[in-house]
Design a protein around this nucleic acid. Structure first.
Lengths: 180, 180
DNA sequence: TTAATCATGTAACACGTTACATGATTGC
DNA sequence: GCAATCATGTAACGTGTTACATGATTAA
């Protein structure tokens, strides 16, 4: 949220949209969490807010990052310590299901993997629209440096879904060999 | 935990080791969380426990899955509903850092990526030891069906780290082009 | 004698999710 | 008339993390 507010002042509603439309690939947040954390961040002095009265739409509260908020953002970005191990960490209820799939019917496990394959294909296709979307947001932010990194993150997504597809195809082939 | 206890009765300490030695690739749990959740599961009737007095070692409490626990495990394994989307969900503070890396020095971003590369290489190498480890645990569990799925999960790990390495190499190449 | 392994927990806090609550305006 | 978009929250609950507390035995 500090990262987004650093691009420009925003409402909770707009932050929520940013998470859902752009960041959801690597981070998710509930609407209620956004409003709660905005209040907490204001208490900490990282942001301040101002009510804006509107007449054709409901009133809104616009949040602005403070100096102390910018410091906090930078220190979070730069202290990478043990964080690389954290970065590698996967946490997947899906893989847990696969791990214990010996307790399922063979066909049930296969249908789970086929659903995963469909989801991979869908996600891979969805990445076609990403460059366009980056160009649009990039024009608003007006910072060449930023969009370079956005593209690098998008590349991670593409490569991961392709890898996921490769895996699931091999997994299905392995299991189909036994349960025709 | 129900999945593990389904292989055979165990203590909290042994469950903790299983998470740390075998499941940590796709799920992590703190020791304190394991003991807390064991207590909760006993309250729910999914497991029961018995104290075992030892004389050469500290006493221990052995947990055993109940019929109702087995039912719970099976229903968790088989109801896969919306869970595939959940499976695809990535949550990565590391990718968040990359996304906002425009606020860092260029060199700092690069060194973060190089650390990631080292970690990928290390993890990839660590996968060499996995087949041996699977064979060892497999002998204890004595269920051919199970180890088949364990191998499929290990394959996911190998493929993911290879993909991560491919990505980080391309990302570093992209960024080095500009900051020599 | 010092580190590792065996063994079990409590308390507090941080973070994430779900359910609920409200209400105006705009486009089909 | 109905759905979508704009707009903001509270309360309760569930899950994950950190800090703390204790103490025996065995191998280097």
């Amino acid at each position: 949220m500090l990262g987004l507010l650093n691009y420009g002042s925003m409402t909770g509603y707009e932050l929520d949209k940013a998470f859902k439309e752009s960041l959801s690939f690597f981070w998710q947040a509930q609407t209620s969490q956004i409003y709660r954390e905005l209040a907490a961040m204001e208490r900490k002095g990282w942001v301040n807010s101002e009510q804006v009265i509107q007449n054709e739409k409901p009133n809104k509260r616009v949040y602005t990052i403070t100096g102390s908020g910018k410091e906090e953002l930078k220190s979070w970005l730069c202290t990478s310590e043990a964080d690389i191990d954290d970065a590698m960490r996967v946490r997947s209820a899906f893989l847990m299901r696969v791990f214990f799939a010996g307790e399922m019917e063979n066909g049930e496990a296969l249908s789970m993997l086929r659903k995963y394959r469909e989801a991979c294909v869908g996600q891979s296709e969805a990445f076609g629209a990403v460059p366009e979307s980056i160009a649009q947001y990039g024009a608003l932010v007006d910072n060449e440096d930023q969009i370079k990194y956005w593209k690098v993150v998008a590349l991670f997504g593409e490569i991961s879904y392709r890898a996921g597809l490769e895996w699931v195809n091999r997994a299905i082939a392995l299991l189909e060999g036994e349960c025709k």
